[in-house]
Write a protein that binds this DNA or RNA. Structure first.
Length: 296
DNA sequence: GGAAGTCAAGTCTCG
DNA sequence: CGAGACTTGACTTCC
C-alpha cells in the first residue's frame, strides 16, 4: 500500500506548475519554464521518497501548452534525458505515479475539435509517462465527460472513442467515478464493455452512488484492475463540513481513515489523498496505517 | 510587496 | 445569462 498526495507539496516552497501566457510562447520561454518545473518535480519526488510517500501525482502543467495546436517545439527531444533520469530515480525507489488531465478532456464530446484536443492532451500525458520510462501501472485518470443530454448515447460514444485510442494512451487510462455523471456502478459497466479499469474516489462515491457502501463500491472498482494495471489506485477525501457537498476537506479525518483502513482487512490499494493540506494529510495517514499494521 | 484581474481548453448547475 | 465548480493557482498589471 502506497500513500501520496497530488501535484504540490505545500511545505517545500517549490512548484512544478509554472506557466506563462500563450502570447509569450517561444522556445526560450518554454525551455526556461520547463527547466524550473523539472527541477521542482525532482525536488518534490526526492522529498516524497525521504518521507516514504511513494504515490505521487505529477502536474499536468509540467510542460505548458504541450498539447496546443500551435506547439511546434520539440520539448520531448529536449527533455528526454532529464525525464529518463527522474524516471529512473522513481523506479529505483519503487514509487508510483499518476496524472489527472483537466476538465477539458472530454473524449465523448459531440464537438469534434473538443475530441481532437482531448486526444492531443491525453497523448501529452502519455508522452510524459513514456519519457519517464514508466510501465503501464503508472496511470492517467480521467472522467466521463458531460452527458450532453443523452446519457446512453454519450457512453456509447465514449466506448467507441476509447477503443480508437492508441495503445500508448489506452494502456494507461483509468476512469474515475465522479459526483455528477458516472457513479462507480456506471463506471463499472463501462469497464465491462471496454476493459478500462475503474479508479475509486471515496468522496465522489459519498455524493453519487447506487446505494452501495464505500467498501462495496471499492470492491467493484478493484475487480476491474487486471495484472498489467498494477495494484488498484484510489482517491481518498473527506467532505469539507463548511462547504458545498463534494468539496474537499482541509484536513484528513484521522478516525474515519483509521476505520476505513481497518475495514480493508488487508486489501492492497494505493491511496491518493485529495485533501487541501496535501502532504500533511498523507503523513498523518501514514502514522494511522503504521498503527493499524501493528494491531493486525 | 501585495491586491486584483486574467489566463488554452468543457460542461453543467445554480442564482 | 453569467458565475462557479472541477485534480491543481500562477502570472501580470497596477498601485
Amino acid at each position: 500500500m502506497k500513500l501520496g498526495y497530488p501535484v504540490i507539496n505545500l511545505g517545500l516552497g517549490v512548484t512544478s506548475s509554472h506557466t506563462f501566457r500563450l502570447a509569450l510562447l517561444s522556445e526560450e520561454k518554454l525551455f526556461n519554464i520547463v527547466r524550473k518545473n523539472l527541477d521542482a518535480l525532482e525536488e518534490t519526488v526526492r522529498w516524497n521518497i525521504e518521507h516514504n510517500l511513494l504515490f505521487y501525482r505529477i502536474s499536468s502543467n509540467l510542460i505548458p501548452f504541450a498539447s496546443h495546436l500551435n506547439m511546434d517545439i520539440a520539448w520531448q527531444t529536449k527533455f528526454a534525458p532529464d525525464l529518463a533520469r527522474i524516471g529512473q530515480y522513481i523506479k529505483d525507489n519503487h514509487m508510483r505515479i499518476s496524472m489527472h488531465p483537466g476538465q477539458f478532456v472530454v473524449i465523448n464530446s459531440p464537438n469534434g475539435s473538443v475530441y481532437a484536443n482531448s486526444v492531443r492532451e491525453l497523448q501529452y500525458h502519455a508522452d510524459i509517462l513514456d519519457l519517464l520510462q514508466l510501465d503501464s501501472t503508472h496511470k492517467i485518470q480521467f472522467h466521463l465527460g458531460g452527458l450532453h443530454g443523452d446519457a446512453e448515447g454519450s457512453r456509447e460514444v465514449f466506448i467507441q472513442r476509447y477503443n480508437a485510442l492508441s495503445d500508448a494512451i489506452r494502456s494507461r487510462l483509468v476512469i474515475e467515478n465522479d459526483e455528477r455523471f458516472a457513479s462507480v456502478q456506471e463506471c463499472f459497466e463501462l469497464s465491462k464493455r471496454c476493459g478500462i479499469p475503474v479508479l475509486f474516489d471515496t468522496l465522489h462515491h459519498e455524493v453519487k452512488n447506487d446505494g452501495e457502501t464505500i467498501l462495496a463500491g471499492l470492491k467493484k472498482a478493484m475487480s476491474t484492475w487486471g495484472e498489467t494495471n498494477g495494484i488498484p489506485m484510489i482517491d481518498y477525501s473527506n467532505q469539507n463540513p463548511y462547504k458545498r457537498v463534494g468539496a474537499h476537506a482541509e484536513t484528513i479525518d484521522v478516525e474515519k481513515f483509521r476505520s476505513f483502513v481497518r475495514s480493508l482487512k488487508g486489501k492492497d490499494i494505493d491511496i491518493m489523498f485529495e485533501i487541501k493540506n496535501k502532504e500533511a494529510s498523507a503523513l498523518q495517514a501514514q502514522i494511522v496505517l503504521e498503527g493499524v499494521r501493528k494491531i493486525f
